[in-house]
Amino acid sequence: MDASLTLETGSGFWTPVLLLLGLVVCIVLVLIIRAFGEKSYKRGTEQTKPFLSGNAEGNKDAMHVRAGNIYWGFLEALKGYYTPTVGAHTGDVTDYLIWYIGVMAVVLGILLVGVLL
């Protein structure tokens, strides 16, 4: 077994260990730069409170962005795609069967036509 650390991917290569070394170097650099930073940060004082344009912070439970709100714009913009696609997943098991029979017919058709041509 002549395995090495580099994976040949056909037209390129991939060496994860090299990338990890690079990451370590970057993290060390970041930590060094961070060490030059401001040292007057104090826990538990006014400094650590979130600043919302001067308004008081709301209830913690209400501040969390819930999953349903994430990517709302994306889904709204692609409504033309999503409405029919989500609609096709009816949850009705007979529809699943119709899909199965339909796909089987299409695959058989392609295979049989492929031989005739």
Binding site: V86, H89, T90, G91, D92, V93, T94
Partner: peptide, 10 residues
């Protein structure tokens, strides 16, 4: 009725 057993969909 399978049309009504569709809690899992979408």
């Amino acid at each position: 009725d399978v049309r009504k057993i569709t809690k899992l969909k979408g």
